[in-house]
Design a protein around this nucleic acid. Structure first.
Length: 475
DNA sequence: TTTTGAGTTGTTCGA
DNA sequence: GTCGAACAACTCAAA
């Protein structure tokens, strides 16, 4: 008699219902992580996410060890791996916390059927969402497609509470099946480009604790500070949340509970952000084609441009617009980008360059440590204007205005675009307007040390408005 | 069923 | 410099 406990996007020992269940069953518990073959999943982890996963797994193994357990790591097709382990451990129980990506739902449904047929007791739990998608619908029984009604509806629901986990000695197996070494998964880059990630992040439990302390400090001013990329006014919990090192229920508990949060404007805004994540999962669940296709079908005919050079310039942070370039370089260097800047670079790619939002989604997927299929899809379809509750077509962010408004002193730009650091504040947002002398004094040679703008903001805005106009006319 | 009010994050233009 | 309106129509959600 034994229980297989399969970890996936829930790499934690607290608020973990599957773990609580496994312990309650009371027999030997075998914690397991399976690295799936990448060929079959179009959304296999990007480089930055793999880097994070490595450390999250290392940390999970450490935490399990402190309880006398270990993390068994195997590589391969989940059904084959689980079949083998059922044999090796004589397991009678199999449990996990649910995932919500379309491919994961399909995989889990098949596995559940297979192992129930094989005579196992299979159970799954909700650990990672406050409201699970099948449980949320409007009065016509349909999924919400607008955030505010979704949020209002969620306020009437029970969000569950932090699952308590009680440890017992008898769950420690006397013999362990063999495990792959974490290093053999090859999650860390072979060419060590991860220096910037290392400097920016601590994926360990200690790092998470530090980030939670930071959240408590900034939360009351969250609603006003979160928009300024040079201020550390956001929680930076997204990667921990993505890999399930912390649950949304735990975050709310750490903030003093939902009712306390609703009484403070900063905290309430943050709570609503957590529900944007819920909304993203809700949409992905009900519209599983959206990572690949626009939710609004008219957009399938959108006249996107093709321009590899401009796409590369955007990716590399060489567009000639300092705020855009700062954001793209922050992303590449640290695996993360401030939310305000994500909107600015997104709008720039989609509207000013008129390149398909999917290029942006793919690049973010490969470079973000917090890459999350649900949130990434919602974000890009929002900025592309083709999703649920989309930005109106005429909402084209002006990369200069945004820069002046949200990075007035240019601190953020100077951090990530050091070749402009010596330019005075009044020229840093649009160096191409700086007089020769100012450029020379700052050591800037346009077209050499820093590019001239690859498009004209005003003209490209007009071009975007016309392209979006065209879409409206197609039925 | 029909109607009504509302909808994350902006920009520009003209008074 | 500041302010309000226009930018378009559509879809959703609820009364």
């Amino acid at each position: 008699m034994a229980t297989l406990l399969w970890f996936r996007s829930d790499l934690r020992l607290t608020d973990n219902p599957a773990l609580a269940h496994a312990l309650a069953v009371g027999e030997s518990v075998y914690p397991l992580f399976i690295k799936e073959p990448e060929g079959e999943n179009p959304w296999a982890l990007g480089g930055a996410s793999r880097w994070w996963l490595h450390y999250a797994l290392e940390e999970l193994d450490k935490a399990l060890s402190s309880k006398g357990l270990r993390l068994i790591i195997r590589e391969g097709d989940p059904q084959k791996v689980l079949d083998a382990l059922v044999k090796e451990t004589k397991a009678t129980h199999l449990c996990w916390n649910r995932c919500y990506e379309p491919h994961a739902i399909k995989r889990d449904t098949e596995l559940k059927r297979h192992f129930i047929q094989a005579g196992l007791d299979v159970s799954s739990f909700n650990a990672n969402l406050l409201v699970e998608p099948p449980k949320v619908a409007n009065k016509s029984g349909k999924p919400f497609q607008v955030y505010t009604p979704f949020w209002k509806h969620c306020l009437t629901l029970d969000w569950g509470s932090v699952a308590s986990v009680s440890w017992k000695k008898q769950v420690i197996p006397s013999r362990w099946p063999k495990s792959d070494k974490l290093s053999t998964l090859g999650l860390l880059p072979k060419i060590r480009w991860d220096k910037g990630l290392k400097e920016a992040w601590d994926p360990s439990a200690q790092g998470l604790k530090k980030q939670l302390r930071h959240l408590k400090k900034i939360i009351t001013s969250y609603s006003k500070d979160r928009d300024y990329p040079a201020i550390e006014g956001t929680s930076c919990l997204s990667p921990y949340l993505h890999f399930g090192q912390i649950s949304p229920r735990e975050i709310i508990a750490a903030c003093g509970g939902a009712s306390a949060m609703k009484k403070n404007q900063g905290a309430e805004t943050y709570l609503k952000e957590l529900f944007w994540r819920e909304f993203a999962y809700h949409l992905l669940y009900h519209f599983p084609h959206t990572p690949k296709k626009p939710l609004r079908p008219a957009f399938e005919a959108f006249p996107w441009r093709q321009d590899k050079r401009q796409l590369k310039a955007w990716q590399a942070g060489q567009t000639g617009y300092p705020l855009v370039d700062a954001g793209m370089r922050q992303l590449y260097k640290t695996g993360w980008m401030h939310n305000r800047v994500r909107m600015v670079v997104g709008s720039f790619l989609v509207k000013n360059l008129l390149l398909d939002w999917q290029h942006g989604a793919r690049w973010f997927w490969d470079t973000l440590v917090d890459a999350d299929l649900a949130s990434n899809t919602l974000g890009w379809q929002w900025v592309g204007g083709c999703g649920a509750d989309a930005a109106p077509y005429f909402r084209v962010f002006n990369p200069i205005t945004q820069s002046e408004r949200f990075d007035e002193a240019g601190d953020y730009i100077r951090t990530y675009v050091p070749e402009l650091a010596k330019l005075p504040d009044k020229f840093i947002h649009q160096p191409w307007l700086a007089p020769e002398e100012a450029l020379e004094d700052a050591g800037v040679r346009l077209g050499e040390t820093y590019p001239r703008p690859i498009v004209d903001a005003k003209e490209s805005r007009q071009r975007a408005l016309e392209a979006y106009q065209a879409i409206k006319k197609t039925p």
